[in-house]
Write a protein that binds this DNA or RNA. Structure first.
Lengths: 189, 189
DNA sequence: GGCGGCATGTAAGTTGTTACATGATTAA
DNA sequence: TTAATCATGTAACAACTTACATGCCGCC
């Protein structure tokens, strides 16, 4: 089974399977809810929405400027039955292996070419970012556990969040180890 | 400080900072040693080597077919002092935030649109892959700890590996949790 | 004789980012 | 009045993948 590329399509279909949305709203949801494991830009979303409408997988409904809360006309899309079919088919396809890029590990690997101080600063910065993210995730978890029926896919959201939390623990633990190691090295020199 | 894009450049400079290499060897090293946090294709490496040579950051040395172990002529590149300067400059620049794409979390998030069995199969597959990877990393660690002076950047390699190991633990733990949850759901239905 | 590994390279296509243009409303 | 938010869309570019062409050597 050949796996489908063009994941933007399925991000859109997946989000529209819950409720009708505009392109702008899709982008916002991807940024806030999927931020730690996915990203999409407007330059991908808008042309893709047009394409999917052309294929009959979604249908758009124009809203006049006075019908929504903004000053500009917008377009709310909803998924069709054909769209749901494509979504289900993709869900059953084999999962593509995770794709990651950690520039920090590249710099760590090549760290012989610079001073320990330079690397230490990077790791400290890294740790600050991930401690913050850890805090945010824990907040989100509290909120979700307090409102069990806010989303119909409540359990799925918690499961996704759970991997995010575990990864943040790994990042913070690892940076602690590296900071200790590098600080020890600096003291002995 | 604006961060440099075009990371292929620094992967090449970084690897050449240790020893002269051919394009083919660079690709092999990226695949085997950086595989879990980075990737480069031939289509990126070969044109980039040409460009870097044109800029005087590296210099290539042609080897005839009979001078190496293959049947084809090859080109060994080594880094210049200017190249080392660029590498050091990049090492001091702020680190770009990690970029990840977990298609499995997308499917998890949208799992309401399919059956628990479909998701369960994906998670089981995911777990098999990451248990294998965990085993491989532990092997590499044993090997490295047994040969302390194989590489001059020995400690850096262990540090990079350490994050890989922690991430694999997260993946395996998480998939265990999800498998238990979904199997429970299937029994109660 | 065929396959896998060594080895280089290009072309075409896809994917994704960034910047820009447009423009109304609301809050500081 | 100015910045932020809502909102859509395109153009240019940069990054990256995939397939292909070429060809020797050693092994089974």
């Amino acid at each position: 089974m050949k796996t489908s590329k063009n994941k933007t399509k399925f991000v859109i279909l997946g989000l529209l399977s819950e409720e009708p949305l505009t392109g702008y709203e899709i982008k916002k949801i991807v940024d806030t809810r999927f931020g730690f494991f996915w990203s999409e830009s407007f330059g991908q979303i808008y042309p893709e929405l047009k394409r999917l409408e052309g294929e009959g997988l979604i249908i758009g409904n124009e809203l006049l400027a006075n019908e929504n809360q903004s000053g500009k006309a917008s377009k709310k899309y909803k998924i069709t039955e054909i769209g749901r079919g494509d979504l289900r088919k993709w869900l059953a396809e084999p999962v593509e292996k995770i794709a990651v890029r950690y520039e920090i590990l590249l710099k760590m690997y090549f760290s012989n070419n610079t001073t320990p101080e330079v690397i230490l600063n990077h790791i400290r910065e890294f740790q600050i970012i991930h401690k913050k993210q850890q805090f945010i995730f824990d907040r989100i978890e509290d909120e979700l556990r307090g409102n069990i029926d806010l989303h119909e896919n409540h359990q799925a959201i918690l499961t996704v969040l759970s991997l995010g939390q575990k990864l943040e623990v790994s990042y913070v633990d690892w940076s602690n180890e590296v900071i200790n190691l590098l600080e020890g090295k600096l003291k002995n020199s």
